[in-house]
Design a protein around this nucleic acid. Structure first.
Lengths: 229, 229
DNA sequence: ACCCGTCTAGTACGTTGGTACTAGACGAGG
DNA sequence: CCTCGTCTAGTACCAACGTACTAGACGGGT
């Protein structure tokens, strides 16, 4: 095994940019460091380092000037995808490739809307990942066909702008549901009536396709909709 | 960055075993392959391949005869930790090092009880991981001090065998609760009455310190008590 | 000016769930 | 043999939840 791939990956050698500088952002040191080493082995790629938190990523983007940021979706101090536009604002030339374990549809959509140049599931091969990095570096926005197939039906069906997104308040309620709170307890926290909470729960449940708070939580967990895990 | 570590890691060079053969079992191709390459770079370690499922791991253990299995806890076709004893039965000489993202206490305990030789969180450094692999290969069962500190209070407090453990049936019910099912639906799945389900739910909730299925799920999620996520 | 989405609050009714018990069957272990 | 834990089933009662509506306030956008 361990197919040593100095194989002719893709013949279209980049000439304009000598080396693509990559920053790996993932709280899993084991993954991030391994990946950084693998990238360093590629002649046209180089890691500028590893960041385990968004805060560290922000700092390293300004100090190490990467071309591409390989960004995990779930980080200790926040949602990676949600931070994409902020990171891009720090250094507009960076391309962001989201590297995620879950690959739930809504994350994919959010990443693309935030300006990600690529999206790779951690279950895919290293070759696919390096391809995505190279594509991103050369200005292309590539999504794997597999993911694209999932994405299209979300965007195309008539001109409907997708009502499925939860509102701010609904996400807030969902967060409290995730804490196992009763409607009454949620109402108390938010300083509103139980009726209002019931409405929010009913609405967000409908959007998630759930018929109870329990099912809503189950789905939210499965799809990785919760920020703090 | 990318501190090239051909540094004198540990001076106690293994002489008896020339090279430790490692099998990486993780459904995240990106991690597994990167890790395999990193291990191949170490002079005393070599990857014999990568397995993305338990089924594949079983096959590769018999065909590639690894010395150490680096095992992820959460795999597509089952719980890695739960499969430890089974894998060890296939080839009794193998040492298992569990590599996990969550590192919830009960997983740690289960891994050790199943005969794991090491336990490393994915958030730790590569150095810690390779150390654990080398330690496992040489017959030592090493747990990082950080994890050990968490483990001790679980085993020592008087001789109390801890009644908090869920029974098999309760775990089963909890799994169905995690799918968002109603008591009636759970009863149907298990072919028992709703009363029985209510009892199980009440009992497991009490053990978890919850007062509702929702809260039980919330706690189970927070503590990483669920096998498939 | 108007519409739309969101947040808020309410009424009403039926369903589900939680709590507190009792109790029989069964298997493992002292 | 008897005990203990577990799984099973039941009764009974009240609280919580889900559903289906209506409706006012408010802000952003056309």
């Amino acid at each position: 095994m361990s197919t040593h791939s100095s194989s002719a990956d893709e013949a279209h050698a980049e000439i304009e940019a000598p080396v693509t500088r990559v920053l790996v952002v993932d709280d899993h040191e084991v993954l991030a460091s391994s990946l950084a080493r693998v990238l360093d082995e590629e002649p046209d790629l180089a890691s500028v380092g590893v960041a385990g938190t968004l805060e560290r990523a922000r700092a390293m983007i300004v100090t190490t000037a990467p071309d591409v940021v390989l960004l995990d979706h779930r980080l200790p101090d926040g949602d990676g995808v949600a931070a994409i536009s902020e990171l891009r604002a720090l250094r507009p030339s960076i391309k962001v490739v989201v590297l995620t374990a879950s690959a739930a549809d809504h994350v994919l959509v959010a990443a693309i809307e935030a300006g990600a140049s690529g999206f790779v599931s951690k279950t895919r091969s290293l070759g696919e990942l390096t391809s995505a990095v190279r594509a991103a570096a050369s200005g292309e926005a590539v999504i794997s066909p597999e993911l694209l197939a999932r994405l299209l039906p979300r965007l195309s069906p008539s001109g409907r702008p997708r009502h499925q997104e939860l509102t701010e308040r609904e996400r807030e309620v969902l967060g409290l549901v995730a804490e196992g709170l009763s409607n009454a307890a949620i109402a108390e926290r938010l300083v509103v009536s139980v009726h209002t909470v019931r409405n929010h729960v009913a609405n967000l449940s409908a959007k998630l396709g759930a018929h109870s708070k329990l099912e809503a939580l189950s789905i939210a967990v499965r799809e990785g909709l919760l920020p703090g895990r």
